[in-house]
Amino acid sequence: MLCLFSLSEASNLAKIYLNEGLEAVGRELEKELANKDFWAEELKGKDVSLGYYDEESTIIVTNKTEKTFKVFRYQDGKLTQEFDQKNTLTGLMGDKEIEGDLKTPIGFYELGKKFTPPTTYYGHYAFATTYPNLLDRVQGKTGGGIWIHGYPLDGSRLDEYKTRGCIALYNDVLKEFTKLIENRKEVFAMTEEKEVVRANTDEIAALLASLFAWKHSWTISDTKTYLSFYDEEDFRRFDKKKFNEFAAMKRAIFSKNERKTIKFSKISISPYPNIKNEKLFRISFYEDYYAPSYQFRGNKLLYVKLKNGKMQIIAEQ
């Protein structure tokens, strides 16, 4: 629960409301949400090393070099480690690029529900990841079927080649893991190679402030400010449109100067492991958008770089 204003500030808002109306109050609130200092204060005492989440979330972290598999629970700003398994089997080292390269992808993915695999080679059951995600697809990566699964029930030997990029846990360990996460709503899988990718309060505060500044510029059709939040060189939309084509489309839409209402909720910001060790993040949220010509309610997804304290969007859906 955000506490935006003190008693005196609330009194000032009341005066603004009486003198200028509700929309003027909304503008003041938007200014505060686009203020990094506000978010830095709001995040005090919260552990955001694995990201910021509005809802209770579970994050699985697999390190391919250390062969570790850890599970963390994030709730109300607290991060608790619940599971730590060593000697985890993954695919080959390096980031997955093409189908059949036998590599476990490096990145951040959602985890699906438990399912029964087509053969007992993968153990009693498995969990599918969302590889390739949006960023993978716009970068041209191929392949799929990256699972967390068990060992062959007939005792066949597994190695880093035979996993074909999946993450394999001993069957008794998989059962423990399943009991832990089976009924949880938001479960994510993060795979790293060597470097431990973590976030800090300053980064998350900067991203939250940027997110709301981007939203405000979108709301008021401030094209120049809106487009300044996109990486002109690396940006790709979900349909692989590059920045220039995307920008032209947005200029045409913004030129209508339609009255818009945009609300964000259920925000999550996660550090995104990558082979270049760049400061990348995955941002997701629920968007409630209304304009006379278009309405949308649904999940929104951004992949961003953090440059000079400001988010730069490199992929969007």
Rank of each mutant, 00 (worst) to 15 (best):
R259G: 00
R237L: 08
S255A: 15
S255G: 07
D234W: 09
L227F: 06
Q295I: 11
I181G: 13
F188D: 01
K256H: 11
S217M: 02
R259K: 15
M190D: 05
P292H: 07
N244D: 11
E192M: 07
F188G: 01
Y272T: 02
S221W: 00
W218I: 00
S284I: 10
D234L: 14
E195K: 12
S228W: 02
E203D: 11
S221I: 00
K260M: 15
H216P: 00
I283P: 09
R237S: 15
L280H: 08
S210M: 04
I283N: 07
K260V: 12
V197L: 00
N244A: 10
S270E: 11
R297P: 00
I262Y: 06
K215E: 03
D239C: 06
F296Y: 15
S265Y: 04
K240C: 07
R237Q: 09
F285A: 12
N200G: 02
D288R: 12
I262C: 10
F229A: 06
D234C: 03
F254C: 09
Y226A: 00
F243N: 02
K179M: 09
I267N: 12
F285E: 08
F229L: 08
I262K: 06
F229I: 11
A252R: 14
G298L: 09
R259Y: 09
F264R: 12
D202V: 08
F238Q: 08
E186K: 14
E278K: 14
F254Q: 10
K242D: 12
M249Q: 13
Y230K: 01
I204K: 01
E278V: 03
F177Y: 15
V197I: 15
G298E: 10
Y230D: 01
F177G: 15
S284L: 06
E233A: 12
V197E: 01
K241M: 13
Y289T: 11
L208P: 05
Y286Q: 11
A247M: 06
K215G: 02
F238N: 08
F235W: 09
E233P: 01
I275W: 12
E192Y: 00
A252L: 11
E193S: 05
R259W: 05
T191S: 11
E203N: 05
E258D: 11
K279H: 06
D202S: 11
I204D: 02
K276Y: 09
I181C: 11
R184W: 07
R236P: 02
D234N: 15
R282V: 04
Y230Q: 03
I220V: 13
A209G: 00
Y226R: 02
S217E: 00
I262F: 09
K276P: 00
N257C: 03
N257S: 12
E232M: 06
A248G: 14
E193P: 02
I283G: 06
E186R: 15
K241A: 14
A199G: 07
